[in-house]
Write a protein that binds this DNA or RNA. Structure first.
Length: 271
DNA sequence: CAGCGCCCCTGCCCGC
DNA sequence: TGCGGGCAGGGGCGCT
């Protein structure tokens, strides 16, 4: 489920419920996620106070004096703040219980998500130390992307989805950003001009920030029982619209698979 | 080292 | 209504 905007919304939603709160206990119902949940956090975390909560790429970092809890939602994960006594269901694999009676609960049917612990500064962790820039910061520029793209033969869609290049561009928004830029998803990264990278960089920023803006509107419901951070009902121009008319030119939207991921585009508008 | 395919897992939807 | 197949928004890893 979560693309960057959903992770951002989740992070912002749980933050005020966690910062300066103290852990009472940890419940691990199903340790088999993408990687095993380290059992030692059951001993390490109680009585520790949450210092801060932040996001890096699609990872949510919960910082303590002793280290950082690194959460990833994978394809189907979600986090909610519930009362500690609230009944759990089948896929509620992990609880972080707070001394105030609240609980951060991880729900993840497909179990592609992860809960990890590191004692080092989190950004030095193996999963985080090689990530590209955040797409919505000034570190993500045309010059940066253009320079990295030279001599790269990979198609542009997989290029912008590569987390070593830039983080946070998931499958939906990769198609959407390429549509907005008028770039065909199969075009080779190295064959695209700097001028077109200018458009692409701005489309990526535009698509992601619009989605985050929409996600923010559901924040107030975050702690309710149905409190999904919400899926972004932002209008999608091409994603999932195979065969339907392009919203610009009316030509049926095309579909193909790139890197095992569904890809949508308009052959008329994207070259 | 760039690039590709595999795979972790459950749920849901579709067609027969 | 039941069942099998295909597909799903992530992303690290191992192999060429």
């Amino acid at each position: 489920m979560p693309e960057l905007p959903e992770v951002e919304t989740t992070c912002k939603g749980i933050l005020p419920h966690l910062v300066n709160k103290t852990i009472a206990s940890v419940i691990i119902r199903q340790p088999k996620l993408r990687w095993p949940i380290p059992l030692k956090i059951k001993k390490t975390l109680p009585n520790q106070k949450v210092l801060s909560v932040e996001r890096r790429a699609k990872y949510i970092l919960i910082n303590f004096k002793k280290g950082t809890l690194i959460l990833h939602l994978g394809m189907s994960g979600s986090l909610r703040i519930v009362k500690s006594k609230q009944a759990y269901d089948k896929h509620d694999h992990f609880d972080l219980l707070l001394k105030n009676g609240n609980c951060l609960r991880l729900h993840d049917p497909r179990r592609f998500g992860s809960v990890l612990w590191t004692q080092k500064p989190a950004l030095e962790h193996k999963l985080l130390c090689q990530l590209g820039p955040e797409p919505l910061t000034d570190n993500f520029t045309t010059e940066y992307l253009y320079t990295l793209s030279r001599k790269r033969k990979v198609n542009i869609k997989q290029f912008i989805m590569n987390t070593h290049i830039v983080v946070g561009v998931g499958n939906i928004y990769a198609s959407e950003a390429l549509f907005l830029s008028g770039i065909h998803p199969r075009k080779t990264a190295g064959s695209i001009s700097q001028a077109r990278y200018e458009t692409l960089v701005s489309s990526i920023k535009q698509v992601l920030s619009a989605a985050i803006k929409q996600g923010g509107t559901t924040l107030k419901d975050f702690t309710q029982s149905d409190g999904k951070p919400g899926y972004f009902k932002q209008q999608l121009n091409v994603y999932g619209r195979k065969g339907e008319p392009c919203l610009i030119c009316n030509k049926p939207v095309s579909h193909c698979v790139l890197g095992q991921r569904a890809t949508y585009y308009c052959t008329q508008c994207q070259k």
